[in-house]
């Protein structure tokens, strides 16, 4: 079983639309995992039917037991995040400000503070309308994506692929360059980079590739909206050559992307001709590359 991860660094490049199309083309050969938890939109195209869902706990939050608390104020004094104000003569924890460091717990003379794991959202396995299974997650307000959540989503997807005898796990990767991307990339057999010829697109591509390089994973790139700016497209192509990243395809700026989303379909279902052919070629090429 092989793991393919799609990442882009920046939002709005069409990453999810492209990943969904590859998922359609791969169909019953793959399990799909949405690790772009901050903007988890994949489910909108997949009409998922829930098979199983579980709460997800992550990160610690301090909790004061008012029965034991003598309001001595030692906790508030050591807290660097101003997360322990006094309200109605009682020290309380402000959940959005508490960073879970646990310093207050360690210094409380009454042992009135405990650190609790927070329920920050849930993860879920669903059947999609395109003959595969999707593992996705949803986080609550203020909860951050983490290496832990990405690992959880990926593990469930891999487990499914194993029991159902699937050849591939296709992962919509996390944005940015932090620990959740490290977790998206660890274990991957192939990385597909999706970018666009804009000043910010190029900037973010370089940044995220620095990380990919560290893991020495084979990488390819799709330049989306290439005809918006030919000079920038050329700049990207030069960069790809320099870094030895295969330029898999260039896709034009097209309203099809938006129209397909509106109809709740992937691009390849919406446009059976040009985009279908183009993305089919991409998918075949990727499979060829990971099999060798």
């Amino acid at each position: 079983m092989k793991e393919i991860v799609v990442i882009s660094g920046k939002g709005g490049t069409g990453k999810t639309s492209i990943t969904a199309s590859l998922a359609y083309l791969g169909g019953k050969d793959l399990v799909l995992a949405d690790c772009d938890v901050d903007a988890a939109d994949m489910h909108l195209l997949m009409q998922p039917e829930k098979i199983k869902s579980e709460d997800f706990y992550s990160g610690l939050l301090a909790k004061i037991d008012p029965e034991l608390c003598t309001n001595c104020g030692i906790c508030a004094n050591v807290c660097r995040f101003n997360a322990i104000p006094v309200i109605n003569n009682q020290h309380i924890i402000k959940p959005l400000d508490c960073e879970g460091c646990g310093y207050c717990e360690k210094v409380c003379p009454e042992k009135a503070i405990i650190m609790e794991e927070q329920n920050v959202g849930f993860w879920q396995i669903s059947n999609t309308r395109i003959n595969n299974k999707l593992v996705h997650a949803r986080l609550g307000i203020g909860a951050e994506n983490s290496g832990k959540l990405v690992a959880k989503v990926k593990n469930e997807a891999k487990q499914l692929a194993k029991t159902d005898n699937k050849k591939y796990v296709l992962i919509d990767g996390s944005p940015g360059v932090g620990c959740s991307v490290v977790s998206s990339l660890s274990g991957a057999n192939y990385v597909l980079l999706v970018t666009e010829p804009t000043v910010s697109g190029i900037h973010d591509l370089r940044r995220v590739y620095t990380l990919v390089k560290k893991f020495s994973i084979k990488a390819g790139c799709i330049i989306n909206k290439y005809d918006l700016n030919y000079a920038k497209t050329q700049e990207i192509i030069d960069y790809l050559q320099e870094e030895n990243i295969e330029h898999i395809a260039s896709l034009p700026y097209d309203e099809i992307f938006i129209k397909a989303i509106h109809s709740g379909k992937t691009i390849v279902e919406y446009d059976k001709e040009y985009f279908y052919e183009k993305l089919k070629e991409c998918w075949n090429r990727i499979l060829e590359l990971i099999e060798n």
Partner: peptide, 9 residues
């Protein structure tokens, strides 16, 4: 290690 949000490495 599954329980750790960050710093697994």
């Amino acid at each position: 290690i599954e329980k750790e949000a960050h710093g697994a490495g």
